[in-house]
């Protein structure tokens, strides 16, 4: 009865409240994963396969968590620092490694990720293998909506700008891009650094609602997960990675009844998408097809 009064006797509000109480962590996680998917999207957009984004997320998480815990820094400030720190690291390691390409860059960034994980494991300030316990709970839904909104806005602006076209040119043909007078390494390092910033902010936001962070959350497995978001969703538009991360984060909840097998469903879906939708679930054609359907001409041809 008390419960009903709090919900002003409205069954719907009550339903929403109980839904929110059950699933708020999931919804928060969808936003964080969305940001991580965007962080790898910008490097993929210029044709670079970087697997360092989990490590960048970790650097951001520890930086901002330590700032709020030890220095009592305002949340906004610690989030920005949580983005700047991995961006600075990306700038330093990007200059030598982004001369590599393809699988070599993937290996180098994977190695970097391991170095970062082991560093978290052994430094005293990061709490070693125990991690950091008692990160203040500061992240609220509107923070996540605002931050991901800013990132999405940035990517939309990027699309029809000089920088966006340069990234696309590098993605299509790096040799030709260089002959067009483009300093390819310079722009690749920028893309890498922006990706690291986004991952770091995501890490900071994540740390401030999970209460606890530890090195294992930023190792090999999440690095591959982030890549999977983008591959499943499609890397040609910014909506692809967002769709991919949302699907892959929600599915294990929907298939909870399968118990330990539910992660196998993720694998199966990934397999099916790679086989039948090699461009991911959202490709450039997707929008054309939607438009066609609305114009009422596309369904039949």
């Amino acid at each position: 009865m008390e419960k009903f009064q709090r919900g002003k006797g409205n069954g719907l509000t009550d339903l929403i409240t109980s839904f929110w109480q059950t699933y708020n962590t999931l919804i928060y996680t969808i936003f964080v994963h969305g940001m991580l998917a965007l962080s790898i999207y910008i490097t993929l957009a210029c044709g670079q396969l970087s697997l360092g984004n989990a490590a960048f997320m970790g650097i951001g998480a520890y930086t901002s968590a330590l700032l709020t815990m030890k220095m009592n820094a305002p949340f906004g400030l610690s989030l920005i620092a949580g983005g700047m720190m991995p961006a600075a690291v990306a700038l330093i390691i990007g200059i030598p490694t982004l001369r590599l390409s393809g699988v070599y860059l993937a290996m180098a960034t994977l190695g970097f990720g391991e170095v970062v994980r082991v560093a978290f494991l052994n430094m005293s300030i990061t709490g070693g293998s125990l991690g950091l316990n008692g990160v203040p709970l500061k992240t609220e839904l509107w923070h996540l909506v605002l931050v991901i909104g800013i990132f999405i806005y940035f990517f939309i602006r990027l699309r029809d700008s000089r920088f966006g076209r340069i990234l696309e040119a590098i993605n299509e043909d790096e040799v030709v891009a260089s002959v067009m007078g483009i300093k390819t390494t310079y722009f690749k390092v920028w893309a890498f650094t922006i990706g690291a910033f986004i991952a770091g902010v995501a890490g900071g936001l994540n740390a401030h609602f999970t209460f606890f962070i530890s090195p294992r959350e930023y190792g090999f497995e999440p690095a591959v997960d982030i890549l999977t978001f983008a591959i499943l969703g499609g890397t040609r538009t910014l909506w692809g990675p967002l769709a991919g991360s949302t699907v892959l984060t929600t599915l294990p909840e929907l298939f909870r009844f399968l118990g330990p097998y539910r992660l196998a469903v993720n694998g199966l879906i990934l397999l099916l998408v790679v086989l039948y939708l090699p461009n991911g679930i959202v490709s450039k054609e997707t929008f054309k097809n939607i438009k066609k359907i609305f114009n009422g001409s596309g369904c039949l041809n």
Partner: peptide, 22 residues
């Protein structure tokens, strides 16, 4: 070796990238 997935105009704009100053 044109940028196949870009429009003709965008291909030219990539060539012109040094003229942008914003």
């Amino acid at each position: 070796r044109v940028f196949e997935d870009m429009s003709l105009l965008e291909n030219i704009l990539v060539g012109m990238h040094r003229l942008f100053s914003y």
